[in-house]
Simulated assay, not measured.
Amino acid sequence: MTRITPLTMDELPDETQAALKFSENLMGYVPNSVMTMAHWPELLGAFRGLVSVIYGESAIDNGLKRLIGAVVSAAAGCQYCKAHTTLGARDVGVDEKKVKAVWDYQSSDLFSQAERAALDLAFAAGQVPNAATDAHFAALDAHYDERQKTEIMAVISMFGFLNRWNDSLATALEDKPFESASSLYQPDQWQAGQHRR
């Protein structure tokens, strides 16, 4: 049970309902994390704005952004976000084999050196204490310009917020991401834990 009760659609103002219905049509569900944020409408609006910028017009492939979110969430230990990001990667067209191999990105031939550099930074930055080093950014320099590096950092940082939000609240995992992650990964790679009681 989520530690702050998510609101229901009926409890939201009409304009918020309309925005979330758009998300529901796009994703097939409304995330419980969003319905919890809805207790503070200004926070929800600001968060929706951040997400739309990060996943909008982009200098970095949106599939890679979802995989960055998955790896930073794995480092932070957030099973809720691991399920959401890997489903999101599939939804934007990342090959299922690649999504399935994301936890082995360092050795899998499905990942390029550029992708590995971004995912290495994501894994390091998701740890506590933060393990990102100058070497991680030097590795990025071989593949990405300043704008692209800024986008990579924006994804990592957004999931820093989401990982803390969802793990602290034990946000209940919705059926669609639960079924996706359960079908993709072995129990040693992903378990819903506190997010699916």
Rank of each mutant, 00 (worst) to 15 (best):
residue 157 S to I: 07
residue 180 S to W: 01
residue 112 S to Y: 05
residue 131 A to K: 07
residue 107 S to G: 08
residue 141 D to F: 00
residue 97 K to R: 11
residue 176 K to Y: 02
residue 108 S to C: 10
residue 37 M to P: 15
residue 137 F to M: 06
residue 116 R to P: 08
residue 125 A to I: 13
residue 116 R to H: 08
residue 2 T to S: 15
residue 77 G to D: 04
residue 42 E to T: 11
residue 88 G to R: 07
residue 27 M to D: 00
residue 128 V to L: 11
residue 43 L to A: 10
residue 179 E to L: 02
residue 48 R to F: 09
residue 173 L to D: 02
residue 94 V to T: 02
residue 63 G to F: 01
residue 141 D to W: 06
residue 188 D to N: 12
residue 146 E to I: 10
residue 105 Y to E: 03
residue 180 S to C: 01
residue 123 F to D: 11
residue 136 H to T: 06
residue 39 H to R: 13
residue 183 S to D: 01
residue 172 A to P: 04
residue 59 A to D: 08
residue 101 A to V: 13
residue 102 V to M: 02
residue 188 D to Q: 12
residue 18 A to M: 12
residue 67 L to R: 15
residue 125 A to C: 07
residue 194 Q to Y: 00
residue 161 F to R: 03
residue 147 R to N: 07
residue 123 F to Y: 08
residue 119 L to I: 06
residue 116 R to V: 07
residue 177 P to N: 01
residue 74 A to K: 14
residue 106 Q to H: 07
residue 173 L to A: 02
residue 11 E to T: 08
residue 67 L to A: 13
residue 105 Y to H: 02
residue 16 T to Y: 15
residue 47 F to V: 10
residue 26 L to S: 14
residue 73 S to R: 12
residue 134 D to H: 05
residue 184 L to H: 03
residue 81 C to L: 08
residue 186 Q to R: 05
